[in-house]
Write a protein that binds this DNA or RNA. Structure first.
Ligand SMILES: [Zn+2]
Ligand SMILES: [Zn+2]
Ligand SMILES: [Zn+2]
Ligand SMILES: [Zn+2]
Lengths: 131, 131
DNA sequence: ATTGACCCTATAGTATACTTTAGGGTTTAT
DNA sequence: ATAAACCCTAAAGTATACTATAGGGTCAAT
């Protein structure tokens, strides 16, 4: 399977495929006589895996680690894999919590600002966050 | 307050403080006779806000805008501030929504995994990412 | 035979957000 | 007085994740 076909069927850029290969996220494909890359069919799955994992907030480095676990499944335990996602889950929940704090601070400013004539001269996002 | 003290009390690097100043996230501090920066006390709050906002995925540019929101009657009209905070609120809610989606997707696959010490060949997290 | 679509490598560029280095001057404690 | 600890600027380097460019070869169709 040529790179263009692969890229298209996954919905990413050709350059990105080559980039992923260069970063070790795809194993080096065979070459055809003319030098073109000849990807095995399951590269599609692998790229879809990468895409999905990226979508849920994994970095390429992390994805590489995940892929390494994936290809040597019998050398790793469910516990390892589960720990990995647990850490990510914790991170995401932390983020949601902080965002909610910022949101309510902003909301406060937002509602403060429609009263018109009252003194609001010192109101900033920093002060709104304090209380 | 000297830069080292400030940096330490917020838990970031001195260089980073100077970088933020250079990017306009901190207002230019006064200088002491010897040329050392003399930060006002509330720089701590400002930096803590930056830290928090960064953690939840705001870029420095966005943080700069957030910090610039001040309900100052003499500088902005109520309309302006209100419009701006509304836009930012929408952005934040978008972020929360996205993160929540990612969280539930991750949670779902996370809960499928047995987490046991057996080999990950059957691991449902990996299967879920594959499919 | 030539156009257009495809493939190749290597290198450089982009954006964000630092971090490090080089080469200094200043303060504080012993 | 001298060493450790602190401060300064300016510029270069790093990491992430691409994206673009230059310069060229290959393939299918008209
Ligand atoms: Zn107002
Ligand atoms: Zn108002
Ligand atoms: Zn299991
Ligand atoms: Zn499992």
């Amino acid at each position: 399977m040529k790179i263009g076909h692969l890229a298209k069927s996954v919905g990413i850029d050709i350059q990105t495929v080559r980039y992923y290969e260069s970063q070790g996220l795809l194993t080096e494909p065979n070459r055809m006589e003319n030098g073109y890359r000849d990807f095995p069919v399951d590269s599609i799955k692998r790229l879809q895996f990468i895409k999905k994992a990226k979508l849920v907030g994994f970095t390429l480095k992390e994805i590489k680690e995940l892929l390494a676990i994936q290809v040597t499944k019998d050398k790793h335990t469910c516990q390892e894999v589960k720990n990995f996602t647990q850490i990510k889950l914790d991170e995401i929940n932390q983020k949601i919590k902080k965002l909610t704090e910022i949101e309510s601070a902003l909301k406060k400013i937002h509602s403060l600002c429609c009263g018109g004539s009252e003194k609001a001269s010192h109101c900033s996002i920093l002060q709104a966050l304090e209380s």
